[in-house]
Design a binder for these strands. Structure first.
Lengths: 229, 229
DNA sequence: ACATTTACTGTGTTTTTTACACTAACTCCG
DNA sequence: CGGAGTTAGTGTAAAAAACACAGTAAATGT
């Protein structure tokens, strides 16, 4: 029924920089490719976009296929379309990043067909990546660095209940630098979006810290005002 | 030689939000479509990406075909890929914005084949747009609003020599709100990236203002430091 | 009880942001 | 040439935000 649009041999794919935080390290999910080109290389998870899925849906599907998770925070951030970025033809790739919490029962055991294996890799120990994936990763990290300063995305990496020290760790890992503890806590609490749970950490050696929860309601009320985390 | 990648009937295009400033109003370039679908509707300039051009090249080409201009500041900002955004098939569209100065000898008389006509339209008087172009425009403006606060893109809209009042006008038009004159001037000058030309406006009624030039060298030296215009 | 580790707290200084109104310079016109 | 009209240009005080900085409190393990 539809008229055919002019076209040539081309296609598009999604690539995902999937960040996970396990309470200690910040990691991304990499796959070891099972096919040419770049067989046996490490690469960002990605796939072609299906005929009847939107870009956002496709990104969610890719993440779900690897991790089994749904409803994960994902954001499209850039599209890579150099003519020769894929050796087998023109592939334009739309990049997404995702943020999720690792560990516990959600431990995430990745399975997939086009990959020999998938691994969570510390972002400070990344191997050489296939295609232009290093560039895609770099740009993703850069975007997240900016975004974390203005939007409450750090909470996506943390369990529902978390301590201020954990929150600070997330910021320090993403920004790649140390922050002053007192100033950090003062500022975070001043936004009024953290709810003190009157509850302490359990199962830790040494002094237990107070647990907090991110209060989405209060955050929603702040909209319009510029808020800088 | 190349293996063929799996694919279906799909293609991708570039759409451009081309901002122009004529000293008074902020405008974008719109075309009146000559073909179905949305024949006779106003739309953002756009075209399919050629087989051997990168996305950036394609965006530059589209702008050049309409205006004859080259070396214009352009930035990719988002990719739109809903399944039904184009009635004739799957078209993923990569959006760019561009900033340029209008008027004088550069007056820009747009010509093109797929458009009946092209016009510069005040951003406060936009007509109904074809496809999802309103959404594409909205997101573009939003991105520029953010960017103008951190990067020296306002200068792209101004002639080489400009007055502080003109610069402030650009900010006010993009941000959509009035700014305090004294605070604005103080802040702009404090960055040290404006060179006072010891030269006055000519041909104006009433008192002539001092002309400035943006000093790219000094700006380059600031890199790394967060600078907020 | 002591050693160890992490949680938690406050103040003073500096910098940035905001609010605010008048004089100076130039042009046009009569 | 003088006065009316219009835009250019300037400073200060108050408030808010950012920054630098170190010791005590609480819990654990031995």
């Amino acid at each position: 029924m539809k008229e055919v649009l002019p076209q040539f041999n081309s296609t598009f794919s999604i690539d995902c920089v999937i960040f996970g935080f396990d309470g200690g390290d910040l990691k991304i999910l990499l796959i070891e490719r099972n096919n040419e080109p770049f067989k046996d290389w490490w690469a960002l998870p990605g796939n072609l976009v299906g005929e009847n899925e939107s870009l956002d849906q496709s990104a969610s599907r890719i993440l779900n296929e690897l991790t089994g998770l749904t409803d994960i925070y994902m954001e499209q951030y850039y599209t890579f379309g150099d003519v020769n970025r894929h050796p087998q033809g023109r592939v334009v790739s739309i990049a997404y990043y995702a943020l999720l919490r690792l560990g516990g029962d959600k431990a995430v055991r990745p399975i997939s067909s086009y990959a020999k294996q998938a691994h969570w890799v510390n972002i400070n120990e990344l191997p050489k990546l296939a295609f232009d994936h290093q560039q895609i990763y770099d740009k993703g990290l850069e975007k997240i660095k900016r975004r974390i300063k203005h939007q409450p995305i750090a909470f996506e990496l943390l369990p529902e209940k978390f301590t201020l020290t954990q929150l600070q760790n997330v910021y320090e890992l993403i920004l790649g630098k140390k922050l002053d503890k007192r100033n950090f806590r003062k500022k975070m609490l001043s936004f009024g979006v953290l709810k003190d749970l009157d509850e302490k950490q359990k199962g830790v050696s040494f002094r237990a810290a107070t647990l907090y929860r991110f209060d989405k309601r209060k955050y929603a009320k702040l909209f319009g005002k510029e808020i800088s985390f």
